[in-house]
């Protein structure tokens, strides 16, 4: 989280460094922010829904909107059978969303900018959807890799391609979230560095407001990306769930 090292040079990647909070337990700042996200989500839903008002207040309205948003997404993408997977998709969506948003808090830490975190989330989705597909379809699941009407000769080629395509979900799902969050925060830091460097550059310091203006726009853009990437992560989970249930 330190903006610069002891020599005074700027290190844009320092914001992603893991620092031990409770070193003996291997508990790092990343873990702290994950726990905080979990606590905030729980607080948001529990406190938000406490009034149980017919006409919701602000917090209850927000909590209901989040619930309804994910509920509609599942209904639309997976269908009625997908409703029993609502808790999974909702938890995933809120965790990614709060992870992204906590990264926008000053002095915060973006745990979704770590590939190991997003890869773990993607692996949970991957393993779970595969397990659901096998549980529902049993041996028939293998037909997913061998489309109907393909000649046996071509199957030698098609089956490995389909398997690679299926496995590549794991990479694309995790890298998309990780790369978006990493690139966004690096960009913010790079332009923030430009402000300071230009500000101390004598006559050139009149140009310093330019990267400042850009950074203000970028902060807004990053908030959009935070929501968008949580949405994309959840909707891709829904699409994979749909494939697992229907084997398209």
């Amino acid at each position: 989280m330190a903006a610069e090292s002891s020599e005074g040079a700027f290190h844009v990647m320092d914001q992603f460094v893991l620092t031990p909070v409770v070193g003996a337990l291997g508990f790092a700042n990343s873990n702290f922010w994950m726990l905080l996200a979990g606590a905030l989500i729980t607080g948001f839903m529990v406190l938000g829904m406490r009034p149980r008002a017919m006409v919701p207040g602000r917090l209850q309205g927000a909590a209901e909107a989040a619930y309804q948003f994910v509920y509609d997404m599942i209904d639309e993408q997976v269908g009625h059978e997908g409703r029993k997977y609502f808790p999974f998709v909702f938890t995933l969506f809120m965790f990614v969303l709060f992870g992204n948003l906590l990264g926008m808090v000053p002095y915060g830490f973006t745990f979704t900018s770590h590939i190991m975190v997003t890869l773990t989330l993607a692996a949970i989705v991957f393993v779970l959807t595969t397990a659901i597909a096998i549980a529902i379809h049993g041996k028939h699941f293998l037909s997913y890799f061998a489309p109907e009407g393909v000649s046996p000769v071509l199957l030698v080629l098609v089956v490995p391609i389909e398997i690679i395509s299926y496995l590549s979900r794991l990479i694309s799902l995790s890298v998309r979230l990780f790369a978006n969050m990493l690139a966004g925060h690096v960009m913010l830091k790079v332009f923030a560095t430009f402000i300071v460097l230009l500000g101390g550059a004598g006559a050139l310091s009149v140009l310093a407001p330019l990267p400042l203006a850009l950074n203000i726009a970028l902060v807004g853009f990053e908030f959009l990306v935070a929501f968008l990437q949580a949405y994309v992560f959840a909707i891709l989970t829904c699409i994979y769930l749909h494939d697992a249930i229907h084997l398209h």
Partner: peptide
């Protein structure tokens, strides 16, 4: 398939291509 801007679709297409290649 989620929000589709031309930029977003391009990024997704590139990512799908690269991730399958990696696998």
């Amino acid at each position: 398939e989620g929000p589709v801007g031309s930029w977003g679709t391009g990024m997704r297409a590139g990512l799908e291509l690269v991730s399958a290649l990696l696998v």
